[in-house]
Design a protein around this nucleic acid. Sequence first.
DNA 1: TGGCCTGATATACCAAGGTATAGGGCCGGC
DNA 2: GCCGGCCCTATACCTTGGTATATCAGGCCA
Lengths: 223, 223
Amino acid sequence: MSDRSMSDRPPSDRSAMAVESPFVAIIDDDPSIRESLVSLLRSVGLTALPFASAQEFLQQRLPDAPGCLVLDVRLPGQSGLEFQRELSGTDIRLPVVFITGHGDIPMSVTAMKAGAVEFLAKPFRDQDLIDAVHTGIERDRDRRRALDALCDLRERFRSLTPREREVMQLVAAGQLNKQIAAELQLSEITVKVHRASVMRKMQARSLPDLVRIADKVTLAGDA
Amino acid sequence: MSDRSMSDRPPSDRSAMAVESPFVAIIDDDPSIRESLVSLLRSVGLTALPFASAQEFLQQRLPDAPGCLVLDVRLPGQSGLEFQRELSGTDIRLPVVFITGHGDIPMSVTAMKAGAVEFLAKPFRDQDLIDAVHTGIERDRDRRRALDALCDLRERFRSLTPREREVMQLVAAGQLNKQIAAELQLSEITVKVHRASVMRKMQARSLPDLVRIADKVTLAGDA
DNA sequence: TGGCCTGATATACCAAGGTATAGGGCCGGC
DNA sequence: GCCGGCCCTATACCTTGGTATATCAGGCCA
């Protein structure tokens, strides 16, 4: 079990840990631009992490904190737009702020369609970048909060036995214990036992509560 | 009661009516461009409605069908971007495809942030516009479907008496009949009566069903 | 082998939900 | 004034849900 997908990540260390300060990763092949971006962002109290290439960025382990990615459109090798698309296929879902010296409209439209926070053509005002970065961090903070809650739920769901999962699904679908028993070839009392275990393990205080939890867990399964 | 907000619109005529063909509204002050756009869109079987200005567009009653708006960024008077923002405050939520002869990156970014489907700089390929329009229509079709379902629910919710609404809210919150009775200073049997009315009027076949309906109705209330 | 966990089942009891019938008070429209 | 809708209540009965206790079978491990 070497893959660390979302549903496998233990949420304990995240909720218990103190809130880490947000960070900004910068990928730009021009050292002088990296330097000026780093100093700009640090001047407003942000942790800036400069990288010269996408590869260098991928090798680095990112902090477990809300963050944002400032990405040059033109990179050595693959373009920033391609890298953005590639990232969306991984579990690194940092909001992206594009900067570029040689951009055009189709480029910016592609980037925004792919979910970029901002697309800034050089020269841009410092404040515009700072605003964009803050927007991105805020977006990431929300995403992480939602993910944390979801991981909690998934962890609990994973602790259910197969039978309990089946029962939970049918309960959330509105079936009566009697109907569930018939469908699963069980006695009604057994369904009740499983149902009680489900309520306890999922920490649901009421049936409506369980219904909402079930919807979150199963609907978010493919997201 | 002269305002026709979402929740007031009767859904009956929409679901009963045959599916109307999608339309494309075009706002451009250049007659020759309007003409060529109209003929292009009609050549692929779409209903094209040309307008010379935003005012002219607003005076026209739009078909009750999925549609899309092709908007020139530069318009007499207010700009296309301003008009886009203005529209988002009304109940006309047509997806917007921008076309422009004198666009720049910040313009396109603003438009995309505000939810535009596409931002095309002239000269663009005919196929690109057609693709964008189809994307927009598809988006509007989804939006309308969701809105129809929501209107149905809201209509039913509106038919509830104030007491029934209160009970429904507390039931969906997971409270027991006993607790609801205490909170509303009622006897438990009265709560049961209201609860039964709620299930019947909202056409909920089970408690989980009602919970999902309640969440849709109340969560979508501010949207 | 014995101890332990999981799953399934049973009995029994109590709490909660649902339905039907009946009735009273209040208010606005005909 | 009368009717109808809304709100509240009550009695009675049945179904469903929830819990506790106990039993039994199978798999796992010391």
